[in-house]
């Protein structure tokens, strides 16, 4: 970046005298953090073996802080476009509450602390996965893919998929097939989730030149992509049943939730113009958050509530 562009950035977002504590907390993307906390907790509880409850708490805390740190680093790098997008204009840097340098410093410090604490409290495989997650989100998604390809959130979605795998690794010290399945459910969920958002925020992304799928390929192609990926997601969501860590309750819930997901994806596919089309895209976006939360919740309840886990009889015998 040239000096000229650096100067212009400072003009747009003047160096603040320092914001409120809550402004720095906003840098950590608390809503994203809450889903990360939940999915990593499920990974931790599903994993075979035991972990001291306090160390389990520390592991979740470290994963949450690591996710928050990557959020701060994302806001640091994307400050130039955040201010021009309706969805992100109220973030602390565009509003001039926190300077870019402060966001960078916070992100780097919290990244180092979270990885260190997770390594000391559990094991260095889990810590390594957390470091990989932060690095992937910053370098691969934010810096490399986001502004270059419509596949940005397909590949970049891996960063948001790691938390249950980290939780699993914190207990077992290993990465097993079950944790890969937990990873893949979120990985396959990410594209239809974000493309639904991009459909009704298309103008935002177009204005700042982020090549989201609706901007590059158009809304119709995006609708087809959403429908196809939704089918793949719903089919793959049955994998826990096949591997035997999802029981009858999970089979029923994943079927019902999957039917709801496909129905909303179909409505998005069919309704293509006007406020109604935007409404369907928004409904799919919101439902997809509930879908992921509910799927993981059933897995968690089956693992924790005695007698709730009833095998389906559909497990593959290895």
């Amino acid at each position: 970046m040239s000096d000229v562009s650096l100067k212009s950035m400072d003009d747009v977002y003047p160096q603040s005298a320092g914001g409120e504590v809550r402004d720095y907390f906003q840098l950590l993307k608390p809503r994203v953090m809450s889903l990360v906390v939940f999915t990593s907790f499920v990974g931790l509880m599903l994993a075979p073996g035991t972990l001291h409850p306090f160390l389990g708490f520390v592991a979740i805390l470290a994963i949450a802080v690591g996710a928050g740190a990557s959020g701060a680093l994302n806001m640091w790098y994307d400050a130039d476009i955040d201010g021009q997008m309706q969805r992100t204009a109220a973030r602390p840097i565009p509003r001039g509450r926190v300077s870019k340098d402060e966001a960078l410093a916070l992100g780097v410090v919290l990244s180092c602390f979270s990885v260190l604490v997770l390594g000391l409290a559990t094991n260095w495989l889990a810590a390594g996965l957390l470091a990989l997650t932060i690095g992937f989100y910053l370098f691969v998604y934010t810096m490399w893919l986001k502004r270059r390809t419509p596949q940005n959130i397909v590949i970049g979605g891996a960063a948001g998929s790691f938390p249950p795998m980290i939780g699993w690794a914190a207990v077992t010290g290993s990465v097993s097939l079950e944790s890969v399945v937990l990873f893949l459910i979120i990985f396959l969920w990410t594209p239809p989730h974000f493309w639904a958002l991009a459909l009704y925020r298309c103008r935002d992304y177009s204005r700042v030149g982020v090549p989201m799928l609706p901007v590059v390929k158009g809304p119709d192609s995006t609708r087809t992509h959403i429908l196809v990926y939704s089918f793949i997601l719903v089919a793959f969501s049955l994998a826990p049943v096949a591997l035997g860590f999802g029981g009858v309750a999970y089979l029923i819930m994943s079927g019902l939730l999957g039917a709801g997901f496909l129905y909303l994806a179909y409505l998005v596919f069919v309704h293509r113009v006007g406020v109604e089309a935007d409404g369907h895209a928004k409904r799919l976006f919101l439902f997809s958050i509930f879908y992921l939360f509910a799927l993981y919740l059933v897995l968690l309840l089956e693992a924790m509530v005695p007698g709730m886990m009833v095998p389906t009889g559909f497990e593959f015998k290895v």
């Binding site: 005298a17 001291h52 602390f113 000391l120």
Partner: peptide, 28 residues
Amino acid sequence: KKRKKRSIAIGLMLVGFAILFYAITIIR
């Protein structure tokens, strides 16, 4: 005022971090 609040928050975080390290060490 804002700076004072930030300083208190940083102080509390550092104290929390020290307690966390101590507890992890004892448990491990």
